[in-house]
Amino acid sequence: MMRALSLVLIASATFLAACGGGPKMDISQMTAAQPVDLQMAMVPTSVQTEYQIGVGDKLSVRVFQVPDLSFDELTVDTSGNLQMPLIGAVRAAGLTSGQLSAEIAERLSAEYLRNPQVTVTVTEAASQKITVDGAVTKPGVYEMRGTTSLLQAVAMAEGPSRVADLTKVAVFRTIDGQRSVALFDLAAIRQGRAEDPRVLGDDIIVVDTSRMSSTMREIINALPALSIFRPF
């Protein structure tokens, strides 16, 4: 079964209700919703590297040698579904293009085709927003289209301030409904000594964690290693 040939854009729902023009979120005043559970499973950043389809994304769907089931552009509806001939609504939101390809192929093979070869490609993603705060030149909420790395996200805010501690950059993210945080060494990333991770829609990036509340600093300091997301 063919896999998608390109995954280059990111889409997801907006994290902040204020993103549409309201004031930016003051992460420096954040407090923990609950104490850190040192027994909770750690989620490595690699889990988040493959793009998940979202509402409003436009997809190209190709079924090999079946033109009537091949489309240059289908849009994921507000329910997160993709409407296909014969098989009807197919859940797309939250899946990678490869997973969606497999799902469509399985549905088609159940009644209509023998060993269908399906390729799903994200051709356009709905815009999404990230928040960049802390010791940067212009803190705020920024819209991104396409794959964006942590370095690029900080650059959107016109880079760190001259007094920023780049060894401690926090990324807040919701993973499976749970707010999580990971710490990154931006200085090492700049020097090529560490991987430049992708940021996702709704991420909140805080440069220089010394500017955060003491409670949140305690949570971050409890992280066992860099680049590991931990619920809080």
Rank of each mutant, 00 (worst) to 15 (best):
Arg3Ser: 10
Leu5Lys: 10
Val8Ser: 15
Ala11Pro: 00
Ala11Ser: 07
Ala13Met: 15
Ala17Val: 10
Gly20Pro: 01
Pro23Gln: 15
Ile27Gly: 01
Ile27Arg: 06
Ala33Met: 10
Pro35Asn: 05
Val36Asn: 03
Val36Met: 04
Leu38Gly: 11
Leu38Ser: 15
Gln39Pro: 03
Ala41Tyr: 07
Met42Glu: 13
Val43Pro: 00
Val43Ile: 09
Pro44Gln: 06
Thr49Cys: 12
Gln52Asp: 07
Ile53His: 01
Gly54Phe: 02
Val55Trp: 08
Asp57Arg: 02
Leu59Pro: 00
Gln65His: 13
Asp68Cys: 08
Leu69His: 12
Ser70Trp: 05
Phe71Glu: 02
Asp72Trp: 07
Val76Thr: 01
Gln83Tyr: 15
Ile87Asn: 01
Gly88Met: 06
Ala89Trp: 05
Val90Cys: 00
Val90Asp: 00
Arg91His: 12
Arg91Ile: 12
Ser97Val: 10
Leu100Met: 06
Ser101Gly: 04
Ala102Trp: 05
Glu103Arg: 08
Ile104His: 00
Glu106Gln: 13
Leu108Cys: 03
Ser109Asn: 12
Ser109Met: 12
Glu111Phe: 06
Leu113Asn: 01
Arg114Gly: 13
Asn115Asp: 13
Asn115Phe: 15
Gln117Tyr: 04
Val118Gly: 07
Thr123Gly: 11
Gln128Trp: 14
Lys129Leu: 15
Lys129Ile: 14
Lys138Asn: 13
Met144Val: 14
Met144Leu: 11
Arg145Thr: 15
Gly146Phe: 02
Leu151His: 02
Gln152Gly: 05
Ala153Asn: 09
Val154Leu: 03
Ala157Met: 03
Ala157Glu: 02
Ala157Thr: 01
Gly159Pro: 05
Gly159Thr: 04
Pro160Glu: 11
Arg162Asp: 14
Val163Lys: 11
Ala164Gln: 04
Asp165Lys: 11
Thr167Trp: 04
Val171Ser: 02
Arg173His: 08
Asp176Cys: 06
Gln178Lys: 12
Ala182Lys: 00
Asp185Phe: 03
Ala187Tyr: 06
Ala188Cys: 04
Ile189Val: 10
Gln191Trp: 10
Ala194Trp: 14
Asp196Cys: 06
Asp196His: 02
Val199Lys: 07
Asp202Thr: 15
Asp203Glu: 06
Asp203Met: 08
Ile204Trp: 09
Ile204Arg: 12
Val206Gln: 09
Asp208Arg: 00
Ser213His: 00
Ser214Pro: 00
Met216Ile: 12
Arg217Lys: 05
Ile219Asn: 03
Ile219Ala: 09
Ile219His: 03
Leu223Met: 03
Pro224Glu: 06
Ile228Leu: 15
Phe229Val: 12
Pro231Glu: 08
Pro231Trp: 09
Pro231Ile: 08
